[in-house]
Write a protein that binds this DNA or RNA. Structure first.
Lengths: 236, 236
DNA sequence: GCCGCTATATTGGTTCTACCATTAAACCAT
DNA sequence: ATGGTTTAATGGTAGAACCAATATAGCGGC
């Protein structure tokens, strides 16, 4: 044995966090459960309240718990907030020189894969959800509710990811959508009409399980969209 | 305006963390720089040391800083540790019912697009790095150093991702590798011989820019690997 | 002069105590 | 019933003290 891994003396708050993580992992406590109050935890672990708080801070940042103030408040186990991932990537973007173009390219690639898998695995329920989404977008466009529309437009891609039946891909798509949301600008109603027509064509192709054609349609659509977003900003 | 978004009163440690995040984002402080000691920060922000510590804890968890004890220790800005992402996904796996099969499928999909992009964009340097990797794996196999070999095997896929020139894809691949590392079992030398032959074939195809054929070779390889990993565990 | 040991100062890690702020529930008044 | 008021529970903040690791400087022996 000649692997001299440098020792990392564990800090007590890390031990506490790991202990709680372990209990979540082993299913001893699960989504919706409430942890004991900080003061009780401090006593149980035989540490100070500060250490407990730093542990909770870490778990909160990881999206494993949410904290509520006041009576009957406390630390509640969540079902896992995927946004922590996009937050992390966002941090890395601003730090390590990831560009929007990088994200967009990656998104296009992954969308292609998703379309292929969705074409193979989508169920009637999935198609129904996608149809419903496009219908709603159309309504909202008529109602000029552009904010809600934008959200639903992104939801479309997430629904598509869900049609693959693979939650990891759903996670990735949600992450990328989160990232794009930060640079999103509302689009005018005229642009949207094109999008809706394209979506309808796309769904028809997907229903016929024609992955290649559907993928092509989606690619056209995304390219158009990308051009719209890349247009020089217009002062309102 | 009828959107009554629930108010979220900011906690002071969040303000502190955001302030530091902002300074990193704006380039006022960058990779390698050292933040003032906690006591000084507390004074500057006009808060208690506790609040500062919780802010630093948050930034540390986000992979933006690392903390060192002792004289001339402190909080150092890192260049962004991508492992925070795989940690997050790992948490979600244990919580939200992601299975290894899900991860593997996603990985196969993403590897496909990576191969395509790598075939289009790989430079001579990339090819050289990939060649070197396979050579080293071969050496290590002869030397029976299975741990180092496993790391290099994963490195191969990361190098491939780097050949796409898109850091987002590199990030994704690193994440997936981290996830797979947790279930990794050493493989015997005989299995490795096959892998090396496959890699050499793959690289030849990639050099000829034949994305489809390279992709097929990689897929075969990964399928074989997946079967190896899925073999019932053998008690040592 | 060089090696090794020993202060010593710096700095993150931890503890303790006290108090503030928010919240839900119980209670009370109209 | 409705609406305000107390009350207790609980997270958030503060501040002071001390512990533990660690780099640096300085000292001592050879």
């Amino acid at each position: 044995m000649d692997d001299f891994a440098p020792v990392r003396t564990a800090r007590t708050f890390e031990l506490i966090a790991d202990s709680i993580r372990g209990q979540i992992r082993d299913g001893k406590i699960g989504s919706g459960d409430k942890l004991p109050p900080e003061r009780a935890l401090a006593e149980q672990f035989g540490t100070s309240r500060n250490a407990v708080r730093e542990a909770l801070r870490s778990l909160e940042h990881a999206g494993l718990i949410t904290l509520h103030k006041g009576a009957h408040g406390g630390a509640f186990i969540t079902n896992g907030d995927p946004r922590v991932i996009s937050r992390s990537i966002e941090d890395l973007m601003h730090l390590g020189g990831l560009t929007l173009a990088n994200v967009t390219e990656a998104r296009l690639s992954i969308e292609t894969v998703i379309v292929a898998l969705a074409a193979a695995h989508a169920t009637d329920d999935d198609f129904a959800a996608l149809d419903r989404n496009v219908d709603t977008v159309e309504e909202l466009t008529r109602a000029r509710d552009m904010n809600a529309k934008a959200d639903l437009n992104m939801e479309f891609h997430v629904l598509l990811a869900e049609a693959t039946g693979n939650p990891v891909l759903v996670l990735l798509m949600k992450t990328l959508m989160d990232l794009l949301r930060s640079v999103h600008r509302p689009i005018t109603a005229e642009d949207t009409a094109d999008i809706i027509r394209s979506r309808r064509r796309f769904l028809a192709l997907l229903r016929s399980r024609d992955a290649a054609a559907a993928s092509a349609e989606m690619n056209d659509h995304l390219t158009v969209l990308h051009d719209l977003f890349s247009r020089p900003e217009i002062p309102q």
